[in-house]
Amino acid sequence: MARVIPLYHDFAGETVLVFGGGAVGSRKASRFADEARVVVVSPAFDDRLADLAEGDYGAVDLVRAAPDADAVRGWIERVEPALVVAATDDAAVNAAAEAAALDANALVNRTDVSAADRPGSRGARSVVVPATVEDDPVRVALSTGGASPALAKALRERIEADIDGAGAMAELSGSLRAELKDRGIAPEKRREAIRRVVRSEGVWKGLQKGDSYGRQEADSVIEEVLIE
């Protein structure tokens, strides 16, 4: 099976073009709606897409059209997307969208073909959109390479519970790291102090009560390290 490397990409100010307005296209559009302008081209739209377009996002445009394999290139030329998502139920349209996107130097996510179906065939601009779990600013990406979306969903649900509070810990440990550096604490001590903070059950439990409780616990952990 082909191996892919997870990367993060900033789509701020970019356009994502989605071909297909069914359940898959709807899921892909909602995934990018917070981060980019999304244009969905389809003869019909999932109810969730209509909600997205009418909601607070304001960056989801629904275009009612049924492009065939010859027409997708024209849409890509007009919209100039950073990413093209081929999510129709027509393999020929998806293949044409993939080829046109690559010719336009855009990223492409073809939803009907997985890495397992075409091992070693993915180019650098053919991407997988993973399932994600977030506790801002912490984000965990999950992918089974298209082999088992059901497993990706199950793992996401398990990890959601595991990283509860990780966002607050990231903010706290980042602030502490900067403060220790400003105090002139040696790098080795800084690393050990932060390592113990993020592994401290007391700090995690304190953060569940509130940031100030977590900070108090973290300060105690750090002082123990500094006096060693």
Rank of each mutant, 00 (worst) to 15 (best):
R158S: 15
A106W: 03
P149R: 00
K205P: 07
E188P: 00
W75K: 07
R73P: 08
E201S: 12
R73M: 09
A71H: 05
V84Q: 04
V113Q: 01
V84T: 07
A166H: 05
E98F: 04
E192T: 14
G146T: 07
A115F: 07
R122K: 15
G145I: 08
R118W: 01
T132K: 00
A193G: 06
V133A: 06
E171H: 09
A150S: 13
L102A: 11
K189Q: 15
E160R: 15
E80W: 04
G210M: 10
R78A: 15
A87Y: 02
E134I: 06
D135I: 10
A147S: 15
G167K: 02
A218M: 05
E80T: 14
V93K: 01
V93Y: 02
P149L: 04
R156Y: 11
R191P: 06
S212V: 12
D89L: 05
L180D: 05
S126V: 13
A170G: 01
R122Q: 05
A124V: 14
D162V: 12
V133Y: 00
S200H: 08
A82Y: 03
V113M: 01
A178Q: 06
V108M: 07
V140R: 00
E192W: 00
G214N: 12
A168M: 01
I194P: 03
A178L: 09
E179L: 04
A104D: 09
A115M: 15
K205I: 14
I163F: 11
D90L: 02
R122C: 09
A100H: 11
D117N: 03
T111Q: 03
L207H: 02
L107I: 10
G167Y: 02
L151Q: 04
A87M: 04
A178N: 01
A91W: 00
R191D: 13
G145E: 09
A99P: 09
D136C: 04
L155Q: 02
R125H: 13
V138P: 07
A106N: 10
R177W: 03
A186Y: 00
Q216R: 13
R122L: 08
P119M: 07
L155H: 00
D164G: 14
V108F: 02
P130Y: 02
G210Q: 11
A168P: 10
G174V: 06
A124I: 10
V197T: 08
R196Q: 14
A170H: 06
E98D: 14
V140Q: 05
S148F: 01
G74Y: 01
E192I: 05
A168H: 04
V72W: 02
Y213F: 14
V84P: 07
G202D: 15
D211A: 15
L207N: 10
K181I: 11
S212G: 05
D211S: 12
A71N: 07
A161R: 13
N94Y: 00
T111L: 02
W204G: 14
Q208F: 08
R78E: 15
S126D: 10
L207D: 12
R156W: 07
S173Y: 03
S212T: 12
A95W: 01
D211C: 01
A100G: 12
N94E: 00
K209G: 13
A218D: 11
